[in-house]
Write a protein that binds this DNA or RNA. Sequence first.
DNA 1: CTTCCTGCAAAGAGTTTGCATCAAA
DNA 2: TTTGATGCAAACTCTTTGCAGGAAG
Lengths: 143, 143
Amino acid sequence: MQKAEAKIPKGYRNTKQRQAILEILESLEIPVHAEDIYMKLKEKGMNISLSTVYRNLEMLMSEGIVVKSHMMNEDKARYGLSDKKHFLVCESCGKILIIDNCPFDVFKKELMEVHQFDITGHSIEVYGICPECKTKNKKKISA
Amino acid sequence: MQKAEAKIPKGYRNTKQRQAILEILESLEIPVHAEDIYMKLKEKGMNISLSTVYRNLEMLMSEGIVVKSHMMNEDKARYGLSDKKHFLVCESCGKILIIDNCPFDVFKKELMEVHQFDITGHSIEVYGICPECKTKNKKKISA
DNA sequence: CTTCCTGCAAAGAGTTTGCATCAAA
DNA sequence: TTTGATGCAAACTCTTTGCAGGAAG
């Protein structure tokens, strides 16, 4: 199974900033804050501004390539390619895992019938405590 | 099945603003913006400030009584009692329905085993087009 | 009385926008 | 050459915070 490569959609110019933003998003396992993208590109020596990042993210969202999500307990949004949209978040350390087998489709049909909605998408975030944090907490208690 | 009534948790003073915020939350079917709560109380003639609303929402969240959620395409958070946390949102008109039978528990066990997480909570938002908007769109096209 | 809570105003933080310049096509 | 895209700075909006006065217990 090959990774689908996100490309700049037709009708938009191929600028190096735009290209770089897409590459960053592809290289990441989890969705990130707009400023993370900005910082990573700055570190690479690229001349880019935060507004360019935001403007491109907005364009990519409108084209369905990027999905925006808000984690509980976070004040800023995260952005990621649209195939990474189901998360398992550790409430203790903030670690984020991607859930790749989404069981939602089973439920989707029922939901469409009951509410007569045409379902276009969904977003799932699951919160919990990761194995590492569970271990740390045990140590604290027994110490 | 009787509706569980949310009360001001122990250790906090019983002020009329706090009480009123809780009553508003109980009276609503769907989660609302902080400013909605503020406006509703202002309309009722209550002397209250937006910061009081935010401070109380924060307290209620820390006590697990209120849940904060960000809808896609919205810039501000919504707050609701914690039993109302699964939404069906119309992308066209913004209408929000509560999904009350959450199928997630089936999946939860598997997730805990695979990732060794202690699952503490989750959030689900489903997006689509509601029946009314489907009808409107059809009319537009045929006109 | 004591301490928490509130209202007000100001500060903060993330995101958006206006505008002149730059570069893709 | 044309027009979309960028960088910078300023503007906006939601949310948080400091502080002095007020109310709950």
